[in-house]
Design a protein around this nucleic acid. Structure first.
Lengths: 117, 117
DNA sequence: TCATTGTATAAGTATATTCTTATATATGCA
DNA sequence: TGCATATATAAGAATATACTTATACAATGA
């Protein structure tokens, strides 16, 4: 019977499971490059607002991303204080940059900008 | 401009989803350290043979692991020819070694040994 | 050949996941 | 205050996942 070290495996499996969804994986990559709010994800993924919100909740509940309210908007970003931040980073650094998506949003005038940062 | 080789989002998500299960993640770590056969996994995970077999099928179908028949036994090992082998390796190298599990099997005389390797 | 052992597959079930629609909550502004 | 916008949550439905039990297939050895 196995007694120890299973917690770390379990932790890793939990993280991988959360990242094992194309939408969430893209979200994490995106927020690692640009702070992003919910309505932007709705545009980016052409997905309903509740669906986006529920994916973000999973990411937030796990601790992988963090949120910051700015007026009406809630901005999501990678949680650099997450205990397994480096593990997450190691995975997402292998992924192609998604910055072009943000640039496309900007080109369409759909980027939510906070001019008073 | 440095062009790192990246892995497509969908591909990465598929791999992460497969690894996002504690049993399969442990299996992959284990076969990265020791070639292992089905009945050994049954002992290691205290899990039914069909359940083990179904997890291994997912890993095999994805290409992450490969099999080698040796008489009645089918040995599984990490597929080093897998196109995303390095991606997988980068993840599992973060996991604690599971070699002690194999050693425990050996101590119990449950390790299937092929003396004629 | 037949029985045994190791492994794979099939079918069914319980649970988990990911959407949907409807509604609630929070903020900003006229 | 009242309304619009941004976001979250609740409830339900369709689908996916991971087991179960039963059975099939493959190799070995008497």
């Amino acid at each position: 019977m196995i007694t120890n070290e299973t917690i770390e495996l379990q932790t890793a499996a939990n993280i991988l499971k959360i990242l094992g969804d194309k939408t969430r994986l893209a979200m994490v990559k995106i927020v690692s490059e640009n702070e992003c709010c919910v309505c932007e994800f709705v545009d980016l993924f052409d997905m309903s607002q509740p669906a986006v919100s529920q994916h973000l909740r999973k990411l937030r509940d796990s601790g992988i991303v963090k949120e910051r309210r700015k007026g009406q908007w809630i901005y999501y970003s990678l949680n650099t204080s997450y205990p397994y931040y480096s593990f997450v980073l190691q995975i997402i650094k292998e992924l192609p940059s998604q910055h072009y998506r943000i640039e496309e949003l900007e080109a369409q005038g759909k980027r939510v900008t906070c001019c008073d940062e």
